[in-house]
Write a protein that binds this DNA or RNA. Structure first.
Length: 320
DNA sequence: TGGTATGTTCCAAA
DNA sequence: TTTTGGAACATACC
């Protein structure tokens, strides 16, 4: 589920439990997602104390006391949970967000169990989807769930290797309308794939891109170098406001994986095909853009920029 | 059964 | 050279 707001939520929810703790051991059940290899990562992490937990784009970063860095990317289905190793039927909570009674699983302390009939869910996660865990000096285990195995666990002594090619943080003070204009006009690409490009703006994903474009009244297929200053200012404001709202609501919860926040109740286009646009009342339409499901209001997001509503609410005149 | 999925990367083609 | 399309990764749900 993870885009910038979800990753930020996870970092905030787990920071207190991780910073200051020493890593006793690291175990992986899916070596392919660990680089530069499980054995080397195990050696690098053993005995190290976590001095900070941070987010860069969609990466979760662990700063270690010897200067090393561990990055975790959740990709499509990754999430964190907790288990106490001492318990055979440990209580585990997703992302460290307490959800009493939500789930108990013995597998939390014994990852990747065979199908023992224990299908208990850990706040939406299943015990057999624990792909790795970090055991800490307080006896607790940070669990890495990842049903689809797309996630990545990367240790490096040079963070630039991982984050060096990432674009601007959209909530950073350096992300100004002028900065956005420079990035949009330096290329001639459709708006949506450009916004999804992590080397341009780091942290937007499919949901928040659709939402930002709708809030800005811009069609996802508009050419990036065709926006006037006014449109760019709208887009800049829309990106920041939708990301901030996502963080404020603790992220978006969708489908069978990753219980999170309540942002899904406030999405205006994503996943709302056929439903009424909250702005104009017209029907939300699904498109395919850059191989991604895309949701727009055709009335609020005209394909030709010049046809856009003159003010923020003119289109409402067409409703009902 | 087939289509779709919150992400990224690589390669081919335009 | 830049941009786009398609496939791949691997699994689960509807």
């Amino acid at each position: 589920m993870p885009e910038l707001p979800e990753v930020e939520t996870i970092v905030r929810a787990n920071r207190d439990a991780l910073v200051g703790r020493r890593i006793v051991r690291f175990v992986s059940h899916w070596p392919r997602q660990v680089s530069p290899g499980v054995a080397r990562v195990q050696r690098a992490l053993r005995g190290r104390t976590i001095t900070a937990l941070f987010r860069r784009a969609k990466f979760i970063g662990f700063e270690l006391d010897d200067g090393g860095r561990l990055f975790v990317h959740l990709r499509m289905s990754g999430s964190f949970g907790w288990a106490d190793r001492a318990r055979s039927a440990a209580r585990a909570t997703a992302r460290g967000t307490a959800r009493a009674g939500d789930a108990r699983t013995r597998a939390a302390g014994a990852p990747a169990p065979s199908a023992s009939g224990d299908s208990a869910r850990v706040a939406g996660e299943r015990a057999e989807h624990v792909r790795a865990f970090w055991e800490l000096d307080d006896g607790r285990r940070l669990l890495f769930f990842d049903a689809r195995k797309f996630g990545r666990i990367i240790f490096t002594r040079d963070p630039h290797e991982v984050t060096g090619k990432l674009g601007v943080e959209p909530l950073d003070s350096t992300f100004t309308p002028a900065a956005l204009a420079g990035r949009l006009r330096a290329r001639r690409r459709s708006l949506k794939p450009l916004l999804l490009d992590q080397a341009v703006i780091a942290g937007l994903g499919n949901i928040y891109t659709d939402e930002a474009l709708h809030r800005a009244g811009l069609h996802p297929l508009l050419a990036s170098d065709a926006l006037d200053d006014h449109a760019i200012r709208r887009l800049h404001g829309a990106i920041r406001s939708v990301l901030r709202e996502g963080i404020r609501r603790n992220g978006t919860t969708l489908d069978w994986i990753y219980p999170s926040g309540r942002m899904q109740d406030y999405l205006r286009v994503y996943g709302r095909t056929g439903q009424a646009c909250t702005t104009c009342g017209g029907a939300i339409v699904a498109l395919r853009v850059a191989q991604r499901g895309t949701h727009i209001c055709p009335r609020c997001q005209p394909a030709r920029p010049g046809a856009r509503r003159a003010n923020g609410r003119a289109a409402a005149a067409y409703a009902s």
